[in-house]
Amino acid sequence: MSAPGQGSWQPDPEGRYEYRWFDGQQWTDQVSQQGQVLRSPLGAPPQSGLGAAPAQPAHQAQPVGQAQPLGGADGFAGITGELVDGRFSEKEAKAIANQNTKMLRVRLGEPFMARQGSMVAYQGNVDFAFEGGGASKFIKKALTGEGLPLMRCAGQGDVFLAERAYDVHLLNLTNSGLSISGKNVLAFSSSLDWNIERVRGGSVVAGGLFNTTLRGTGWVALTTDGPPVVLNAAEAPTFADTNAVVAWSANLQTQLKTSFKAGALIGRGSGEAVQVSFYGNGFVIVQPSEGVQVVAAQ
């Protein structure tokens, strides 16, 4: 039996269904039969079919173990509806996981790094502190324009992160490296070493390509402006627009390729003037967006 205030599925005390929801103080009218959540008050007359006649189906069929309504069967402080019926409740499955496609939830154990301003909510006792990365990284950011404003998150609780409603993707690194555009970094574990490095084969004059490199063992959450494509660079030489490429395996060989076509040399906004070429065994992540385009004044 659950402790007071803690709800859970329990075998139906009447035996008419597989499970009945106990809210920590009393049995409710929510029951589960064959993976479907229904409503049937205690003492309702039996009927053929599932074993009893449900008063009405729940708003959304939910397998056993998924999030339940915030306020139990009677709603949250007298409020009912899809926003409080459980489908948007906090996901509890893993310490670090996507809350949904646009939001990351991190349960604090070890401190982690996050983009400044990316916290949209938190629960518990959490401390946020500026993370400068040292004088060398500060100078590199000033000289290269590769911006990665970070904050260190520490304490106990859950932190929810998002950035401009971009899609959030979670990767795990095991003694490996990832080169990622600073604007696409959402958060990463403090166990990873990070630095600002010039893309091999490039220079400030040739395009000014500097990326943030993460190395070691840990997790990293990155964002993309839309669903990305992951290309296998080992299959063939791979080229990507400098404004659309998000990240790649740090072991890949890179080279900048400049297009000399007449229509492609009109500044950064054209998008096709400079591409990055990739060679080797690894992957390249490309988003379906070239970022905010700069339109010249007429």
Rank of each mutant, 00 (worst) to 15 (best):
V64D: 13
E14A: 13
L231Q: 07
V230N: 08
A53H: 03
K137N: 14
L148Y: 02
I139V: 13
G71P: 10
P69M: 09
G201M: 07
Y122V: 01
Q62V: 12
Y279K: 15
P45C: 07
V286K: 06
E90I: 10
G78V: 09
S32I: 11
K183Q: 14
S249F: 08
G218F: 09
S259H: 15
F188V: 04
E131T: 04
H169C: 06
G157S: 12
I79G: 01
A236T: 12
P228A: 13
E235T: 07
V159L: 06
G280W: 02
C153L: 13
L252H: 04
A250P: 01
G145N: 08
F160N: 00
I139M: 13
L104V: 05
E131Q: 10
F260H: 12
G218L: 04
A67R: 15
M151E: 14
D241C: 04
E82N: 12
A233T: 02
N211G: 05
I96H: 01
A273R: 04
A297M: 14
K94E: 15
F210G: 00
A52P: 06
Q255S: 10
S259N: 13
P69Y: 10
G182T: 05
T101W: 08
Q253P: 00
A187F: 09
L143Q: 11
C153K: 00
A95I: 06
S270M: 11
M113C: 07
N281G: 00
V168M: 04
F188K: 06
E110Y: 04
Y19E: 12
W9I: 14
N281W: 01
Q30A: 12
D158I: 00
G291R: 11
Q60G: 01
T213D: 05
R164Y: 11
P57S: 09
G291Q: 12
R164F: 11
G271L: 05
